[in-house]
């Protein structure tokens, strides 16, 4: 299963190294990790998408991360109402004949063209991971020359639906 964990961390040297070390030490596979500044100075926010076997593994990771001195807060938001976004840049082959066809795909996905050359386009698209994957699949037949994705960044929505099963209890 896929888990999404958000971290609030002190912006100090070596923090990212400590975090990735924890994942590799227990051989958990990081699918994506995004790091950036937050609303407070000296504090960064990190979103990690991780492949795990079960909830127990996810709980272990959460606890291990919580133990790190420079990590202020850890949240397992896998089963919560969240806003999750990722950005992808796709360089696709676009000859004159297919160009308008490609344009017609971009609009419903609310992508935008950020670079045009003689035989290719660079398209920027944002959204949840599934949307981006769907878009990439649609472009694939035209010939994708290059592709880069940022990985998911996420946080909780302002309002949480009340959940029947109280899964996210804490023993602390």
């Amino acid at each position: 299963m896929k888990g999404i964990i958000t971290l609030t961390v002190m912006n100090r040297p070596g923090v990212l190294n400590r975090i990735t070390n924890l994942f590799s030490k227990r051989s958990y596979n990081i699918e994506s990790i995004t790091v950036g500044s937050s609303e407070q100075p000296d504090i960064s926010r990190i979103t990690v998408v991780v492949q795990v076997e079960n909830d127990k593994e996810l709980e272990q990771i959460t606890k291990q991360l919580n133990k790190q001195i420079d990590i202020i807060k850890v949240m397992n938001i896998t089963n919560q109402a969240i806003v999750a976004r990722e950005l992808a840049l796709v360089k696709v082959t676009a000859a004159t004949q297919t160009r308008s066809e490609i344009y017609s795909l971009i609009e419903p996905f609310r992508g935008s063209v950020v670079d045009i050359s003689k035989d290719s386009l660079v398209i920027q698209i944002t959204g949840e991971a599934e949307k981006i994957e769907a878009f990439i699949e649609l472009l694939r037949p035209y010939g994708i020359k290059e592709l880069t994705r940022t990985g998911t960044t996420a946080f909780l929505r302002g309002t949480q639906k009340t959940q029947g099963t109280a899964k996210n209890f804490s023993i602390v």
Partner: peptide, 16 residues
Amino acid sequence: VLGITTPITKHNYQVR
């Protein structure tokens, strides 16, 4: 040394 000792310390620092 920070890299080597990160997995085997509770915490580590480098004085800057």
